[in-house]
Each structure stands twice: as C-alpha cells, then as structure tokens.
Write a protein that binds this DNA or RNA. Structure first.
Lengths: 190, 190
DNA sequence: TGTACATCAGTGAACGCGCGTTCACTGATGTAC
DNA sequence: TGTACATCAGTGAACGCGCGTTCACTGATGTAC
C-alpha cells in the first residue's frame, strides 16, 4: 500500500487542509483525530506517518487557516474602491456569509478561546498571523514603532474578531445581524 | 455524612461559583468534573447530588459569571465621572489586570469559542447576559427597537470582548499591551 | 537495465488513560407518630 | 417531646466510552548493486 513520496506529500497537505476546516467548524477539542482522518478519506492509524502529535497538526492547521485569512485580506485590499484597506477588509469580514461558514473563515473568530490555551508554537503562529493581517490591511510591513495606521488596524481587527465571534455566540438571529451590521457601519466610518 | 438543607444549598452555590472560575481559567473542556469538585473541596462522587450533568453546571456557571460581569458594569457605570457608561466600563475592562485574571473576568472573552458550541441553554443564558450588559452600559432597558445608543453599545462591547481576547491570545507582551491601550483610547473617543 | 532488499504510507486492531456517570455505603438530618 | 425510620449529602470505587497513541502487517515504492 505504500504511496510515492509525491502522493504522500499531497496526502499530508490534504490532511492539514481538512484539519483547518474541521477545527474551525467543530473546535479543536471537538475534532477527534479519527474524525479528522475520516474526513480526509483515510483511517486514523496513518496519522502518525505524517505528524508526531495532535499538537503538531493543530499548529500546522492554524498556520494554514491564518495564512488563508491573510490572503483574504490581501484580496480585499487589492479590490478596495477608494476605501481604506481596513474598511475594505471589514466589509467582507462582517457578513452573514462569513458568520455562517466558520470552516472557511477567520480562525481567530472560530478558535480564539482554544488558541489561548494551546501550546506555545500554536500561539506563536497565531500571533505572527495577526501581525501579518495588520501589515496587510495597513499596506505597510514592519514590526517597529507602531504608526497611527498600525494602531488603528490593531483596534479594527480586534473589533472585527469580537463582533464576528459574538454574532455566532448569540442565540437571537436579529441581534446577530445587528452586531454585524452596526460594527460594519462603525468601521466604515473610520 | 448527610448535611442540612441549608448546608447543601450553600455547597451547591459554592460549586457553581468555583465552576465559574475554573471554566474561565482553564476552559470548559479543560475542566474535568473531578478537578472542579476537588477545587470545591469535595470528592467528585457528590457532584450528581446537585447537578444532573456537566451541561447543567456549565449553564449555571455561565449564568453566574455573566451576572457578575453585569454587576461589574453596573459598578463602573455608577462610578463614571462625566464619561458615558460605555466609556466608563471600557476603562475598567481593557486593563492588564483583567487580562491577567480571566478566572474573575468577562466570560465572553474567556469562553466565547466554547459557548458558541455549547447547548442551547448555555447560549441562551449568554445571550441574555449580553443584552443585559447592553442595557446597563446604555442606562436604558428594553429589547425593542434599538436606539442609536444601544447600537453603539453593541459595537463597543463586541470591540472590548475582541480586544481582551486577542490581548490574551497574542504571544508578545508589547503587542498585548498595545491592543488594550489603543482599544481603550479608541472607545474613550466615542 | 534488472533484481533483491529495505523502506514506509496506509490499514485496522489494540492499548491505556481520562473523564462523565453510576453505585453501594455511611452516618447525620428530616419526619411521622 | 421522644423515638423509629426514611432520606439524602458526601465518599470512594467502579464502569464504560472516547480518544490520543502504538503496533503488526501489507504491499507498493525507492534504492543499492
């Protein structure tokens, strides 16, 4: 049954991608390795041919999910029409579409409480991703002394993550919509 | 070993209070019932004399934690000095003190991702609590047509929750402080 | 280029531990008379 | 008010399931000669 190196690498990538979606959908704790492997079309025994532990795939799946969020921000910034980068990204971020599809959405909104309690590697990956998001929406890279634009972006991103999270937490469809709409309007004004 | 009704009720309250802290500190999934009972000074067997399931104490502990957050908001609003209720609460909320003591802090910031995946009762309790917070910081009750002040409060609270969550998630002490400070300044301006 | 052997991706069973839940038991409290 | 019995808070052991991890095995791939 051995697969070629190329196929194996492809399988590995596929598992990480599946994990990134499963974790965001069901939570890290809510996703058993057997479930994850089944969702990848494999049996659970093979997991350890690719990863040394659940912690490792958590880290890699977070890295992938964060990277795809950064890409989404890049896309939004490219397609902005007169608006600031932050406003352009916020417009795409604070939607019912995003709220209702956590599996392909922002990992911070989907997993924040779990990432806080994850190991150092995962938190480091998440922190880097957050800073990358800041860079992208401000259109300027560099960790040095935070400019006004950077500081604004940090606040706006925190706001977006909080609002999306609360729009999912809340039981009341109308309130959920209101949270998204009002936060969207608020950020558009900046 | 039987205890009097009064003592039993007191024990029950004590367990819920301990749970509210343990859940916020270690997460819901991260807190085993045996740990929780040990933290309450009891053995785990007695748990089911007071509660029918873990879900039930999750709900009650969330209700208590949310209620105590509402009280904190009431206090902040009472002691406000010229500022708006929202600004007064934000000032107390976005502190390193709060960030570093999740066990006695906001349950939304500590548990949002887990509450999203909790059962209906818990989400209902959380939703009610959030609306109560909105009422308190705006100084006006009632769920009817949201006024401008209510809409502002909803955005501000989402912002606060997102910022505190991210300040805990992030790996970098300086960035963490920046998130709190800048979000604080931002909300003070409203 | 072909052949023999080593490697290793993937399978499916098994292990072992943690955790939610149950249970027999104790002895103090509550209650019926 | 006192007595006998039922109740039940709390204990500690046990149960059973889920889940992360390991392992023997298969057979295709990779490699040494």
């Amino acid at each position: 049954m051995r697969k070629s190196k190329l196929e194996a690498a492809e399988t590995r990538r596929h598992i990480v991608k599946t994990a990134a979606a499963e974790f965001r959908q069901h939570g890290i704790n809510g996703t058993a390795l057997a479930d994850l492997m089944a969702a990848s079309g494999l049996t659970h025994g093979g997991f350890y041919r690719h990863f040394t532990s659940k912690d490792q795939i958590v880290k890699e799946a977070c890295a992938l999910a964060v990277a795809s969020e950064v890409e989404a921000a890049e896309l939004a910034v490219l397609e902005r029409a007169g608006q600031s980068g932050v406003a352009a990204f916020a417009k795409r971020y604070l939607t019912t579409q995003h709220r209702d599809h956590p599996a392909i959405g922002c990992p911070f909104a989907a997993l924040a409480s779990e990432i806080v309690r994850s190991d150092g590697d995962t938190r480091a990956v998440a922190t880097e991703g957050f800073l990358k998001l800041v860079d992208v929406v401000t259109g300027q890279a560099g960790r040095s002394r935070p400019t006004a634009a950077r500081r604004k972006a940090i606040v706006a991103l925190s706001t977006m993550i909080g609002a999306l999270t609360m729009s999912r937490l809340v039981d009341d469809a109308e309130l959920s919509d209101t949270i998204l709409e009002e936060t969207g309007k608020h950020l558009a004004r900046l």
